[in-house]
Design a protein around this nucleic acid. Sequence first.
DNA 1: TTCGTCATGTAATGGGTTACATGATTAC
DNA 2: GTAATCATGTAACCCATTACATGACGAA
Lengths: 189, 189
Amino acid sequence: MSSRRDVLSFAILGVLGDGPQHGYELRKRLTTVLGPFRALSYGSLYPALKRMNATGLIEEESLTPATESTAPALSGRRARIVYAITAEGKEIFGEWANKPGPEAWEDEGFAAHLAFFSATEERTRLRILEGRRSRLEERVEALRESLTRGKERVDAYTLQLQQHGLEGAEREVRWLTELIDQEKVTQER
Amino acid sequence: MSSRRDVLSFAILGVLGDGPQHGYELRKRLTTVLGPFRALSYGSLYPALKRMNATGLIEEESLTPATESTAPALSGRRARIVYAITAEGKEIFGEWANKPGPEAWEDEGFAAHLAFFSATEERTRLRILEGRRSRLEERVEALRESLTRGKERVDAYTLQLQQHGLEGAEREVRWLTELIDQEKVTQER
DNA sequence: TTCGTCATGTAATGGGTTACATGATTAC
DNA sequence: GTAATCATGTAACCCATTACATGACGAA
């Protein structure tokens, strides 16, 4: 129900929520937003836009993108295809943002959710953050286990790699705890 | 010249360097070794073993795996197929370990190299570690740029995500520097 | 004039996960 | 008895990257 492809769709919908955009620009935004969690090639973006247009989540517009009102509108360059989110698209996006499934605790899904947290209700935000933290606490536990109770002796380098991985996961948990605390303070007001 | 598939092959050769193994056990080792950089399903492992057997990098053995000499040999359980590294496999592995290509700076490739550093010559170790550090320094630079010179204002959550990502990359660089220093001290003796 | 960026798109290629199939054994 | 682990393997399914195709504009 929430494939890799779906996450991409939601991310696109999220960006289009700020105004119509064309593929090339969309890709830059998505790269910023999904960052290191998800690379994005044109070979997957353009087909995604076609699909979503066909399904009615987005629609083609002939307008100049909102963010470029200052720039020389389509100054001679190749024609752009500008997409806008539809009413249906907004609904689907809202559902995704506010009724998160298990994908919200995974690396990629979590990053996508966080990127569009402004579209998520306060209570749901907390649920997502806490779910993500639980997931990472499990990872920490697993790594600790394999480091202490690990029977197979590994060489010094592998050990350092594992140790480093563990510290990274612990750091992740601390970060999430900070976010959760911040969120609680905000919500108490 | 070094696809995702190749990295898997090298990792398998690396583990088999410690003695013959069968697929099921191999998977556990590889999961420990490649850890979070690379998940491994049977659907990719078993075919890989077949391929490598066909190419002559490994060969089937009917022996009980070395590490299980104490266990009741094949105690009624389903027959295992034990694979051992061949002379050719050893040569290919040695080449990979000591003549690293650009894949050695990438996430997955680096993890694989580090996992089998004991098979790598001292000078080459330093080259790999330094190459990896350079790669990460580039990442740090890129993240810093997008955080300071970033024109598009992002919301607070995205900002914190990016900030967190930057700190993670910086931490990575520090870790590598430690490893490099250690390595230099070791080599000076 | 040449290189970088803008801009869209398709085809070839490669490769991974999940689900399914099968069946024994061990621990609770 | 029943759940977990051992153990191998295949097929269906899904999907992404890279290379290629095309073409214009702006800057050096």
